[in-house]
């Protein structure tokens, strides 16, 4: 068996999580490597979650939120965007490849985009290989 990465995807309840539901209703098929954690907003994502996930063996972490200017809570996704820069810096400091983190905007009506994002992420992580055992 080849390497099957584990990917944690933080999904906004209003957009990406709904898109994932819709992908199911449309019977779209995608890799089984993603485990979704539902948040109320991508702006709820704390950098600590990303670091936690990687240190516990996740090979990749995704954050999926609403398109900019379409946030349910006005500008939560802009906060997620700001924070993701911080996350990338943190990853580098801790010796993780920044490609292990991904931020994608998906509306509730775009199951195809959701499927594309998780498929591409899985391919990318498979190429990168398992997460390094870098501990602080």
């Amino acid at each position: 068996m080849g390497f099957e990465p584990k990917i944690i995807a933080f999904c906004c309840h209003w957009c990406a999580y709904a898109a994932a539901d819709l992908a199911g209703a449309a019977r779209m098929q995608y890799p089984h490597n993603v485990r979704i954690v539902r948040l109320m907003c991508s702006g709820m994502m704390h950098p600590e979650f990303v670091m936690d996930a990687l240190s516990q063996g996740a090979d990749g972490v995704m954050v999926l939120g609403c398109h900019l200017d379409e946030c349910r809570y006005r500008d939560g996704n802009y906060r997620a965007l700001d924070r993701s820069d911080m996350v990338v810096e943190l990853l580098e400091d801790f010796g993780y490849e920044p490609e292990r983190f991904n931020l994608t905007w998906v509306s509730s009506q775009e199951p195809d985009k959701f499927v594309k994002a998780v498929t591409e992420m899985t391919v990318r992580i498979k190429k990168l290989g398992p997460v390094n055992d870098v501990q602080g």
Partner: peptide, 9 residues
């Protein structure tokens, strides 16, 4: 029936 109008359903 509209493709893009509503960002939040």
């Amino acid at each position: 029936q509209l493709d893009k109008i509503f960002p939040t359903n």
